[in-house]
Computed example of a mutant assay.
Amino acid sequence: MKIAIFSDTYAPEVNGVARTLQKLSGYLQEKQITHKIYVPENRGQTIEYSGVERLTSFPFLLYPECRMALPNFSSLNQSLNDFSPDLIHIATPFNVGLYGHYFGKKHRIPMVASYHTHFDDYLDYYHLSLLKHWFWRYMEWFHRPFEKVYVPSVSTRDKLYKKNIHSNIGIWGRGVNHQFFSPANRSAEMKKRYGIKEKYILLYVGRVSVEKDVQTVLNTFKSLPPSLYDDTHLIVAGDGPLLSQLQAAEPEKTTFTGFLKGERLAEVYASSDVFIFPSSTETFGNVVLEALSSGLPVIGADKGAVPHLIDHGSTGFLCPPKHTQSFVKHTETILRNEEYRKQMGYKAREFALTQSWDDIFSGLMGGYEEVLKKKKVLTPA
């Protein structure tokens, strides 16, 4: 099996799609499955990744740090002809994906798609709601020729069914590195590094942007009862367009770490007490699973894919989106009851241990093989 994968993001970029595809590439290499990944170039990149072909690109309007490809079609066509894929997997509906879409249809190559981002929800946050109708018209057209469409969660599948995007939608979930994201990484050194003297630490990890609703995290922290607020510190770990603005406006008891990775990120997760994630636009929520694996109770928005990861009252709590009072109530409940917090953290870790990357990728490979067999049966000799 030779697989050509098209995406608008890949390592070293840090987001759920890029990390998932990098994990997938590692799995394919381990299983000696030939593959090639076509993605926009990453300016300033110093690491070369095996099997990745970079395409000329320019910054995306809404996300300048993300890039849109401007491929040389002659060169890309030659590369694909030389590679001669058996299967095409398209992970973006935009221009890199459009070329894979065109090539697959032209050469009658079996194709699958994976849907990763609720761009329609993003349009609301950026005051472009009038474009939603046309967005879904386009998505319906784009996904029509695929044999199967993969989504990360049940809620995302249900949404696409309602939009009549495709009749064959499968779940391709996400896993977590249990050894890396572990309670064993808890360290007193983390507090010293950031000058934190308070007893409790609230944590948010993710993009610092309007569609992630980071303001609800800040409002929750500032609205804690005075006695609890005095004993609590907030860490916001991540980068994004709102970072400099929020850094300038927030109080001393908030630490903005910027982008973290590797051992520093694992240590911050394990050394915190509660994870707050108010985003209601998630198709999965990788950081939620990382927090659970680190033994953290999670308080999240009861919308999108996050509710599939949180067992309300057992591994965390779910709150109405943007409802600060609910986030405050549950944060107070967890912080004031040490035994309850420990039980939640233990159950969170137990759940995360059931989410294995190997099982998830094995299921995806089974889906690939089914598509190839079906296409072979239906294609006239």
Rank of each mutant, 00 (worst) to 15 (best):
L98F: 02
P226M: 04
G173N: 08
Q245I: 13
S244Q: 14
F351T: 04
L246S: 09
K199C: 05
S272L: 08
G16N: 00
S129R: 04
I90L: 05
N42E: 09
F351L: 06
A18W: 10
L260W: 03
A184M: 07
S182D: 15
L234D: 07
K159C: 13
Y126M: 01
T216C: 04
S79R: 10
G240A: 05
L123Y: 00
D82L: 10
H107R: 06
P225C: 15
A301M: 14
G238Q: 12
L76H: 15
G304C: 09
T324E: 11
S50K: 00
F58R: 04
Y102A: 13
Y340R: 13
E339K: 13
G44F: 10
T333R: 00
P380E: 13
D358S: 08
A237V: 02
G313F: 02
D311I: 05
T20N: 02
H133G: 06
L202E: 04
L243V: 07
L372K: 15
R108S: 10
E339I: 02
H178D: 14
Y229F: 11
I276E: 03
T257F: 14
K197R: 10
A249Q: 07
Q29T: 00
G97I: 14
A18G: 08
P110G: 09
F327Q: 01
K373M: 14
I310F: 02
L372R: 15
V217K: 05
K347T: 02
Y102F: 07
G313W: 00
L70V: 11
E332S: 03
L265R: 00
Q78S: 05
V214F: 04
Q343H: 11
Y102M: 13
E53K: 15
C66A: 07
K132S: 03
R137G: 00
L55S: 14
E13C: 08
D311L: 11
E30P: 02
